[in-house]
Amino acid sequence: MNFWEKITGSDMTKEMKSFEARVKNLPADYQAAWVEINGYLWPHSDFTGRNLIPILDGVLGLLEETSADGQSVQEVLGDDIRGFCSALAGEEGAKSFRDKWRQQLNHNIAKKLGK
């Protein structure tokens, strides 16, 4: 079953439609990242997509908030979107990815506070 079959004819359609509407408001590089993230998460395992909704909702929230902040999508997700997705999905390497986010957080703060 592919992505589109999964989302049509199910109660997720409404949510996916509202996602789409939100995605349209994102800058182009963010939209591209969104497509890539979906492409990775959806076919990746075969469970009902309903469980994916909160994750996608969170990712979209992150994209909306950071794009409004004027940051580039690379700054937010890094170069490795695949890695980002496996971290989201709690797979192998998730721990090291979260460590990277942690370091990034402290590093950015130190840099921006000028210390």
């Binding site: 395992s45 469980n51 999905a89 709690g90 998730a94």
Partner: peptide, 14 residues
């Protein structure tokens, strides 16, 4: 619980 937990639980139950 985080996204990762939700996702993994879904895979486990599947």
């Amino acid at each position: 619980r985080t996204y990762a937990d939700i996702y993994q639980e879904a895979i486990d139950s599947k």
